[in-house]
Design a protein around this nucleic acid. Structure first.
Lengths: 195, 195
DNA sequence: CGCGACGTTGATTTGCCTCAACGATTGTGG
DNA sequence: CCACAATCGTTGAGGCAAATCAACGTCGCG
């Protein structure tokens, strides 16, 4: 069993865990490395894992009727990523999950996660809080999407995720913002000259 | 104490509760009626309650720099509404929460909700699942917002919330979709004629 | 009754997309 | 280790989706 320390530290930012609880968790997780561009899930698959990112960046994206990809979220160090709906229903999902950098992750399968929820009720609390935090982030983003221009959304993104702003290709950022790479390029040009 | 049955039924769609647990819950909630246009919270307030809707519709909206309102979500029968970030941090929030119809609600204050989480750990599970479901809805909406036209988002809204489509004024729906009432009017005109 | 909320229409403007083309960079197989 | 392909960022011309602004009729409510 590889080191699960990053996941335990993550949990312990919310609540303390005993040695026995940590041992239980250790027995139910899988740590692995994945390559750039590798897929953890494709649209139509059933999402079999909750994935925690130790190192690297992943994206979740959907594909519209015209075949275009649209980034729904990025997950970097300390983030969780999963097609929650597919994971809990054990039915095919609409999301794709792919690594944008060579990454190191910890995965938990459905059975194992449910086993942990039953045996460590505290984990319900932890996942409740984690999900609430992510929910608030999505609400903020929706407010941006319905109230702001592409420029404003780009500035908000840079402010909120400064590291991702420099780590990710602009095509990926444009896809996340809901604009074309060409238009993002225009925005960036005006930011440099006009400021 | 007024009837809390709708809330208990809501909880029991997720897990069973004992008589003692139900009594605990009953002692910690407040049921009330509110008028159309009444505010439960304004931007700058601290969100003091988690609110469950028994009857009616509420909206949460933000106000941009130009003073325009943008609907972040609607909450109808069986939904929860709260400025989660403000509620948990006990700090001023950016949201406004207002009734769009005369409504009947159940409210839980922060102390009481935390008391219930400690004494009925099951509730962590319930709120975890409720929040996950809402999180998935927001993800779907973000995908729509960054990938679709106003027409497509309107059709998706009608399909997903058919009741709200007829109950709410179009100005409120337009605000939710991120388009102007004038443009929604044009869309609706074309739907009637062009179909 | 009168006012404010609501829905609608039309003229004009603007934010952003589409399509096409082109260097620069990356990475990968021979 | 080089050569070629694929990815990436950028620029520009033209077009469309949606906003803005103004005006007007209807309705419900106090």
């Amino acid at each position: 069993m590889m080191e699960a320390a990053p996941l335990i530290s993550h949990f312990e930012t919310y609540l303390p865990f005993t040695e026995e609880e940590i041992a239980l968790i250790n027995n139910r997780i899988h740590r692995k490395r994945i390559k750039r561009r590798e897929y953890l899930m494709r649209a139509g698959d059933i999402c079999r894992h909750y994935t925690f990112v130790i190192e690297g960046v992943l994206r979740m994206f959907g594909i519209d009727e015209q075949g275009r990809e649209h980034n729904i979220l990025f997950a970097a160090e300390g983030d969780w990523i999963a097609d929650i709906s597919s994971f809990h229903s054990t039915r095919p999902g609409f999301s794709n999950i792919q690594a944008l950098e060579p990454s190191e992750i910890i995965q938990i399968e459905q059975d194992d996660l449910y086993y942990l929820f039953i045996n460590i009720p505290k984990l319900d609390r932890v996942f409740k809080v984690v999900t609430e935090d992510k929910y608030v982030e999505l609400q903020d983003r929706i407010f941006q999407d319905i109230s702001s221009t592409g420029l404003e959304r780009y500035l908000y993104f840079l402010e909120k995720y400064p590291k991702l702003g420099s780590r990710l290709p602009n095509t990926q950022i444009a896809s996340y913002l809901g604009i074309t790479p060409e238009f993002l390029s225009m925005i960036r040009k005006e930011l440099v000259s006009g400021k």
